[in-house]
Structure formats: structure tokens, C-alpha cells
Design a protein around this nucleic acid. Structure first.
Lengths: 218, 218
DNA sequence: AAATATATTTAGATAAGACTAAAAATAGGT
DNA sequence: ACCTATTTTTAGTCTTATCTAAATATATTT
């Protein structure tokens, strides 16, 4: 099928398309892939010849349907393996990424299918990111409770679970609102409270708060 | 660490050294790797520079201690994954090889260690081949009962379990002796009898027989 | 021991994926 | 609209792993 490198490019383009809701520039892709723009141009041409992306010189790239399908398959494998590592092999959620980066390229439909079943068809990976099903559908929105994030994780505030006025007034008072970027600086195992960074300010919040704020990750 | 290709060469050299109990010729390695002799020479030189093999022109190769250690690690991973696929993911023992060929190259000590533990430290893979432990020790001899082999598997007759004269006389009569090559042509699920190939002759034997013959595989 | 056959190595080429340096195209500012 | 800065592409090089064809070394036969 496709090489590891090709799959990594497709995955990166997929993530960038999602993030910026637009075509992906050569430079953005170079940064994401930690490589040089010239290397990106080379690879994009190859992907274009294989009809995995739509590319016009100086216009950036978009995934074709085939490219999107392929990218989602890789992401599906990555997240299933992350789930496996944490749930079955005692990995910590912060240890899984590098290994999953390798495992995501294993080619075997049966393996992916059976792994999914073995794990009980999980809907989210250990970071709260949605795991697409065998047809490539993300059945859950790509958001998690702030309380589900771990140290150093970040995202954008996209919703509240509790919408009582008490809670919303608290948010107002502390300048927390939809669209704000939030990063977890510290997480207390003892009481679930966390120290977060929001608009250059540090703020300590209780688990009751973090448990009622939805965050969009990536 | 090492590339997939380098690891595959080391593995092949390890198997050939075992098989012939001698240094490995370029041609033998080319055949095992399904490649050309010139490619083998190129790769051997690289492995030699990295001190993974001991090589003198026209003299064949042997694994160095480091090369042997590396080869055994790859074999360990291969066989652990095979066990995983069969025991946990409903793979048939004849479906696992290609996938294990990919999985064996995943680099993560923790992964291998945890997988081993998760599986309960199995001693043999689904084909009866021994799984080395984390220190590279094969705790069981590399032999299995003929009855444990499946269709198309082959090996060399290396021992008997039942050494009653009745049994040995039966073996004599049918020209079965230590050192002979045996290949399983058919295996009857119903009564466990099998059709084997021994010295160009076909022979049907009952499960009682195959259950008392030790075979060295590979 | 010479002649021949086989095995192995060398030399030169290719493809994938990356790089540097230079050229070309686009975007911004006035 | 022009000049400049930025982005993107091109051209040429490098490394890894492979190949073919040719050369050389070893093995075998008579």
C-alpha cells in the first residue's frame, strides 16, 4: 500500500485541515512534519500523482476522498493502539504516543478489526480523542471534559455541561468563556483540582469546575 | 537503532546458523532473503561496519554477540506477537506470520516486556517454536511433538517420547529414524491422523504416532 | 595442475525520501 | 503599481537498499 512517510503526511494534512478548516500550506505542513518546505513539495507531488491529495502549485493541498479515507484509517489504528497500551499493557497515557506512531503503520485489516473488538469498540483514546469506526465515522464529537485532560494538555473551551447560573456566573467572574484557550499546568491527584493557564493568567480550579467544562482538543 | 532491513538480515543469519551449524554463505542468505547475492554483500558490509556480524571476504558471515542479541530480540518479539494474535485476536496460526513480520520491528522495550507479562510469559509460539525470555534465553528446547505441527510445516526428527520397543519397531519398519526430514502434507481434524512426507515417500500415521515423535523445526 | 564451473564481490544505476542553495511566484506595504 | 518580504518550487546532492552486468575468487573435474 502506502509508505510510512506517505501515511504520516496524510495524517498531518488531515489534522491541519481540521485545525484551520482550509487547504494546507507547504510551510504549515513542513512545520507539522518537522521537515523542510522543499521536502514537502517533493512529497506532495508524489501524493498528488497517487491521487491522495489535490494539489495546484503555490495553492497548497487538500486531501482527496481516498487520501482522507487513508488518513482516517491511520488515525483509527493510532488511537486503538493507544487505548490498548493504556488499558491492557499498563502504559501511562503520556508514554503511548511514540509507540503508537509505529504501530499505526501496521498493515492488516483483520488486525485492526480484531483489536477493535478485543478492546470492546472504544469510542475515545486515552487523551479523549475520538476513535473512528471501521467505516471511518467519528461517532462522538471531538471534545472532552476539562477534567479528563492531563498535565500539559491543552484545548479550546467549547461548552459547559452544567449550565446553572451559579456556574456560569463563576465562569464570567474568572473570565472563562467559549473560544478561550486553556492549558493544564498542574493536576492534583489528591482532590482533582488543577492549575490552568488561560489568557496568560494562571488559575486554580476545583474538580467540580473542570468536570463541567467541555474542551476541544488539538 | 537498526533498520527493518538490517533486523531481517540478522534474523535470517541467525536461522541459517542454527540450521547448518556453520557460517552462512552469501548465496544461502540471498535465497533466504529472496534477494540477489550482490545485495547481500552490500548489506553484510554495512552490518560488519556496525559490528553486528563477523565477515571476511569470500568466507561467509557469522553473527557477533551484539548481532546475536539483536536477532534474538527480533525473534522474541515476532513470536510474542504471534502468540498474541492467536490467543487474543482470534487469528489462525497460519494467518499470523505476515503481521508478525511487521510487528517484530516495533521499537519499545516496555512494549515487549509488558506484552510478555500480559500474555503470561508464554514459552512457545503457536507453531511450537520457543520464545526467548527478556535475557535472550530459550528456556525450552526447540523441538515439538510431530502432532503439534500443522499442515505444510516441516522439521527434522530429533527424538521420541515413548521409547517402548513396540513403538521403535514400528518406526524401523516404516523407515522413520532420527535425522530424517518430515513434512506434514495433510492433517485430519477428525482423528488427528496425518499424511506426512518422509524421504520422498508419503505415509499416513495415527495421532498416537505423531504424539510420540519429537521434531526440530526450522 | 589446468580448465571449467560456481560463488562472491565490485562497479555503476535506480528509486525513495530527505537535504541545501538558488530561482520563481505570491503577498504586503506604501 | 512598485518594491520588498515571504512562500513555494526547482535543481542538484546524499543515503539506504536494491538491482544488473562484469570482474574476480574459490571449488571441482578431469
Amino acid at each position: 500500500m502506502f509508505s510510512f512517510s506517505e501515511e504520516n503526511y496524510l495524517k498531518a494534512i488531515f489534522h491541519l485541515e481540521r485545525k484551520y478548516q482550509a487547504g494546507v500550506s507547504t510551510n504549515a505542513l513542513a512545520e507539522e512534519m518537522e521537515t523542510k518546505a522543499s521536502s514537502v513539495t517533493d512529497m506532495i507531488k508524489k501524493l498528488s500523482e497517487k491521487e491522495l491529495v489535490i494539489y495546484k502549485k503555490y495553492q497548497g493541498v487538500k486531501l482527496s476522498e481516498l487520501g482522507k479515507k487513508t488518513a482516517i484509517e491511520v488515525i483509527r489504528k493510532h488511537r486503538l493502539w493507544e487505548y490498548f497500551l493504556v488499558e491492557k499493557l499498563n502504559f501511562n497515557w503520556d508514554e503511548v504516543h511514540d509507540v503508537a506512531e509505529q504501530l499505526e503503520h501496521i498493515k492488516s485489516e483483520k488486525l485492526t478489526r480484531e483489536l477493535d473488538e478485543f478492546l470492546g469498540f472504544p469510542k475515545r483514546d486515552p487523551h479523549g480523542d475520538p476513535i473512528p469506526d471501521a467505516e471511518g465515522n467519528f461517532s462522538v464529537a471531538n471534545k472532552v471534559l476539562l477534567s479528563e485532560l492531563g498535565k500539559t494538555e491543552k484545548g479550546i473551551c467549547v461548552g459547559v455541561k452544567d449550565s446553572s447560573s451559579d456556574f456560569l456566573r463563576f465562569l464570567d467572574k474568572n473570565n472563562i468563556s467559549l473560544g478561550k484557550k486553556i492549558k493544564v499546568l498542574e493536576k492534583e491527584a489528591f482532590d482533582g483540582s488543577m492549575l490552568i493557564l488561560i489568557e496568560e493568567r494562571q488559575l486554580r480550579i476545583s474538580q467540580l469546575i473542570s468536570n463541567n467544562l467541555y474542551i476541544k482538543t488539538q
